[in-house]
Design a binder for these strands. Sequence first.
DNA 1: AATATTCGGATATTAAATATCCGTATTTAA
DNA 2: TTAAATACGGATATTTAATATCCGAATATT
Lengths: 168, 168
Amino acid sequence: MRMNKGVEWATHACTLLAPLGPDKGLSLTALADYHGVPQPYMAKQMQALSKAGIVRTSRGKSGGYALARPVDDISLWDIKQAVDGPEPAFRCTEIRQQGPCALPSAECKTPCAIAAAFARAEAAYRDALRGIKLSAIVSDVAGHADAKHIGDIVAWYQAHVTEMPVRP
Amino acid sequence: MRMNKGVEWATHACTLLAPLGPDKGLSLTALADYHGVPQPYMAKQMQALSKAGIVRTSRGKSGGYALARPVDDISLWDIKQAVDGPEPAFRCTEIRQQGPCALPSAECKTPCAIAAAFARAEAAYRDALRGIKLSAIVSDVAGHADAKHIGDIVAWYQAHVTEMPVRP
DNA sequence: AATATTCGGATATTAAATATCCGTATTTAA
DNA sequence: TTAAATACGGATATTTAATATCCGAATATT
């Protein structure tokens, strides 16, 4: 079982957008370059985030991406769901309805006990991710960076941030 | 994110072996036929279970597979782990160490906050699966089967069970 | 109004993981 | 000794993920 790598990149991208507030953003190029990931694939993730309403975009010259909601209102589950889709990892193929002792489909109204068990575990996973907000990630990262590195980041921000004021 | 389909088959196979107790088993052919899954692929899963000490095997004529431990001592996590391997779904690629503002590797002793967060969620998933024992699955399935179907299963068992006494 | 820049989306292309199958060796009851 | 069964390694096909390319639509700037 392996998670879509795009989830990692999308989460890093959101972490990078977080300190900018609602009125500033970064272009796709900047987001891709910052972490050295291929631009077209980064675009795919950002578009998924955009569709899910996690980031908003503005096009044309000086366009880019900005967070669409407060950092306390974006959970890791939101991001994972947006990029990785809504399907559960365990997908019941109803093999109980096959073979010499197959259950007739009339008796399969209740979900297979095995599928139900895995679904409960995935619900626990989901709830854990729901409890982790972008704000917690950002403050954790900030707490570990040293002064020099923060300087680098600030300089990079100043060179790349684009204005994306929210219009009423 | 999609789970290895073999986990489903392996779990069903264990569920089928559970009522037989430690001294009786089923051949690979029987296990594969019961749920109508391809035999060579079923073999792969059973061998994984065997390596993990969840089932024991006996080779040669009248050989087969039997559970190696009491049904209360086998969790869904054990099975998932045996078939799907130990690697986490989220794998940090350390992209914080790449790009124009890359963190020097000296500062990356503590794990990336994002990776750590996903790891916590996977721990919740693991703990949930650990809490679900094969015994619970078996009794749940048994509770939902009707009398006629149970008759079918008993007849099938009688035709396919092989003796696999535990030798001291 | 023209233009350069940027996102959106569709579509290849490549790489990786999963699923399936086969052949041979090894074990064991009869 | 023989027949029947699993173990193991590898070969192949299928599916999914990752990467790259392209063109059209939108928009800020000139």
